[in-house]
Design a protein around this nucleic acid. Structure first.
Lengths: 342, 342
DNA sequence: TAATAAAATTGGACCGGTTCAAAAGGGGTA
DNA sequence: TACCCCTTTTGAACCGGTCCAATTTTATTA
């Protein structure tokens, strides 16, 4: 495999000059540059990423961390929303030459070990974190290390943490308003896991929405899910078993909404007629569901691109403040899983 | 940031000894090892990935390449099946310390440039390729370079290419048999893009199945799709517009099957009663569809794990031949989108 | 106790780039 | 022609590890 010294010899120049050509330094005389480029071509030379990052301290790679809850011993089903985000970041990175490292890291004691390795071993130039928890130890750690990172989800306590979030409270509020306009007053709520940071915002939105609609929250109609279809299904069955079941339910992601719809249909009830269902995320299959799901849409691609761009700017030590701490307004997509009260 | 020399000084040993401790060499006396480990702990030292890979020529990272067809100027929708595979590989890699680099590379002239950078720049130790095309230039290139890689999809021409594939012909054949048993003789077929390598195998399976069922193939009932819902929808409309429309249709992935179902339902026909639909992949949402989709299941997690393990063995220059060139039998999942002929 | 073998440790060369102070080259002017 | 200044080019030090031949320490044997 050709090295920079081979190229230098072949072109009859010094390694310094070849390096300058590689880094587009304006110091090189045009004809010299041509000669070097010809040598690079002739030897099919490509610089070693490792050697380069050894001096620059940059890897040209950013890391995405997907957490694995590991509720059971078998791996959990992948969440399409997270995968879509990853897809979006990958698309944003395409053509920039920036690589994407993708890690699945189980939550739990000792999880920081892995982040340490990534950070102190300089395996990536920066990190994007999803599924932020309340007082997330990863945020504390990365801040301490002064390592470039961005978070999808709010970190209000920390003024110097860069994050981008969707205004979940607003989204839920819109959903409640929509249901209230259809005449619903008994509205069920399938919450995200309580340790998630977004759970509180969403709940505040629910409270606000219900207050504005003039409806009372019945705590018997509130269950906590874990983002899986199964938990949505179980949660819905629980709600339907109440003495005064709800006429509508808001699920905090689409997968749980799908599960809820199954539960409803399993009892011979019609979704959108007997019981209305609202989801959250608008994953690509939501609109193809039967009936198509009314859901609060998160603009995945936009978010992914913003996260990527923001992180890039932080790595370049010139944070794009206009992107940081942005609350993106989600949009309610009204489809057929919601209807007026029978 | 502490370096290996700092650790050596702190522990009162030489760098060589520290390196030996890091690499679990048995040469180090236990008490020396303890001293070094204590120093590592005290200084919170983590070895630099770049420096290490500069000598070992290994990055401890493997690359996954997802191709982007770029039919339009806006990015195409991510395919859940591919994302599930990526998820599976990531899960397989979890805990091994191996990183995953994820690249989206557009198909087209000049695509090899990017692979060259990955390979000759030693950005990854090996590659996993999906969506193999007939005479795929990437395979040729990687073989020439003698670079470790595995392919999801057959590469029969090349004895020394390691691949793992699903027996698509068998799968399609099972689907045809299932439909034939339900009394269907006019079976439509929505093909994968023709340049894909798997297209031929699947078609052979269709021919074989139809022959065994004693039915003739009507080429008016065959359309080519591009894996998107939309192409399934358009294809189905086309089939239904024929003078003798089919009573059943096999779609070569679930997304196209979903599209086909929409087209059928849009015409007021009932899927599974008026027209039967079979998909391919069994992505996680297929069984939640309405009606639940009969589909040929690819065991994503198993495939992903095999690909990962096989690639690891190739990188270690000790190929797990028993994993290579394996044809995995897919399994028909019979649900409600297929039924006997009316 | 000396000689010898085995175990543990050392330290410098090396991986392949970047960086920058110093040297060389080129052109203009007196 | 000599001198000066600006543009290019050079090459050695450095990034932070691994590797291994040489050396030192420890254990074994005569």
């Amino acid at each position: 495999m050709a090295t920079i010294r081979d190229v230098a010899k072949y072109a009859g120049v010094s390694v310094g000059t070849v390096s300058n050509v590689l880094n587009h330094s304006p110091l090189v005389r045009p004809d010299t540059r041509e000669r070097v480029l010809a040598a690079i071509e002739a030897l099919n030379y490509h610089p070693s990423a490792a050697a380069r990052s050894l001096n620059t301290q940059l890897t040209e790679t950013i890391g995405l961390v997907r957490t694995e809850l590991r509720l059971s011993d078998k791996p959990s089903e992948p969440d399409p929303f997270v995968l879509d985000l990853i897809d979006g970041v990958s698309t944003a990175a395409m053509g920039t030459g920036i690589g994407l490292s993708f890690w699945t890291i189980p939550v739990g004691p000792g999880e920081l070990k892995l982040y340490q390795r990534l950070v102190r071993g300089r395996q990536v130039d920066g990190l994007i974190l999803f599924a932020i928890r309340e007082r997330d130890p990863r945020v504390t750690f990365l801040k301490e290390e002064n390592f470039p990172f961005v978070v999808f989800g709010r970190c209000n306590g920390d003024a110097d943490v860069h994050w981008i979030d969707v205004d979940g409270a607003y989204g839920i509020e819109q959903a409640v308003r929509h249901l209230a306009e259809l005449g619903h007053t008994r509205i069920g709520y399938v919450s995200p896991p309580s340790e998630q940071q977004l759970t509180h915002h969403r709940w505040a939105g629910f409270q606000r929405g219900m207050k504005m609609a003039g409806s009372a929250i019945d705590m018997n109609l509130v269950v906590e899910g874990d983002y899986t279809e199964r938990s949505g299904q179980l949660g819905m069955h629980y709600l339907l078993d109440q003495s005064h079941p709800p006429s509508a339910v808001i699920c905090n992601n689409d997968r749980m909404a799908f599960g809820a719809m199954r539960a409803i249909q399993a009892r011979g009830l019609a979704v959108g007629q007997d019981i209305s269902v609202v989801g959250f995320d608008d994953i690509s299959l939501a609109r193809y569901w039967h009936p198509p799901l009314t859901t609060i849409r998160q603009p995945t691609h936009k978010i992914a691109e913003m996260l990527f761009t923001l992180l890039q700017s932080i790595i370049a030590e010139n944070p794009a403040e206009e992107l940081s701490k942005q609350l993106i307004k989600p949009e309610l997509q009204i489809r057929n899983s919601t209807g007026s009260i029978p």
